[in-house]
Design a protein around this nucleic acid. Structure first.
Lengths: 128, 128
DNA sequence: TTAAGTGTACCATGCGACATAGTACGCTGT
DNA sequence: ACAGCGTACTATGTCGCATGGTACACTTAA
């Protein structure tokens, strides 16, 4: 389904969340589609079931998926998702932070902006 | 000199590094200027000297500051800094990551781009 | 009804990064 | 000589993360 980077600073359950968000928001996984069970996915990506469950629990809290007890976990209707203001603020700050890191490396504002624009445009095709 | 956010996920020594990088790259601290001693700064911001030293050590490794044994720590000539390709790669990935987080929140590509542009332009005044 | 599969809830353990506390040494400038 | 500086080292505690294991309630299909 996807690959993990065990060397990453990002925790495993966060990587699972991001990978699933990517698949959901790009439409690779459609609304109503069944996700692998906690146990199955944990075997697929070779991590502990508790770790997968933590990712699922958080994804459900954020509205990306929903669960029916005893049945399984499914992709939610993402058009219904409305951004949590705190998450939005966090994402803006992360963006600002990353941009500043480019400037810290000695790049001019123009160079950093050019890099940012390139990255942004590369994402255009996958969304909407 | 600056404030820390103890609630942040970012570690203290990283916050110290980023704060100093900001002051250095914006020219608030000039090349050759003396920085507070490890002990002084640790008292100012109320953290352990070891934590400040860790930040200084890493800043020196990256070329932002230099130390003269028994004398003190000083701001380096930032024009000499050449970006470590790995740091550049990391910053690019962080930028991409943050931008994707905006898209995950349900924003259209156009909306996310607009937010990114605003953030970028707000930084223009402080650099170069 | 039974069995398998599902989500879910615990608890205990180990690990690594981080921050702290304390001590100590060598260097430099006055 | 002394004060201030960077530096090194050990030890301790905390926290988040990941793992291993057990258990329970639910649903679906045989």
């Amino acid at each position: 389904m996807f690959q993990l980077d065990l060397k990453s600073r990002k925790s495993i359950y966060e990587q699972v969340m991001d990978n699933l968000k990517e698949l959901i928001m790009t439409g690779t996984l459609s609304a109503g589609e069944k996700l692998p069970s906690v146990r199955d996915l944990s075997k697929q990506i070779t991590v502990n079931p508790n770790t997968v469950q933590k990712a699922y629990r958080e994804l459900e809290r954020q509205g990306y998926i929903y669960t029916t007890t005893g049945v399984g976990t499914f992709v939610a209707d993402t058009s219904q998702i409305q951004a949590d203001p705190r998450d939005l603020k966090a994402a803006r700050e992360a963006l600002d932070e990353a941009f500043r890191q480019l400037l810290y490396l000695g790049l001019t504002h123009e160079e950093a902006k050019e890099i940012a624009m390139t990255i942004i445009e590369e994402r255009r095709q996958d969304y909407d």
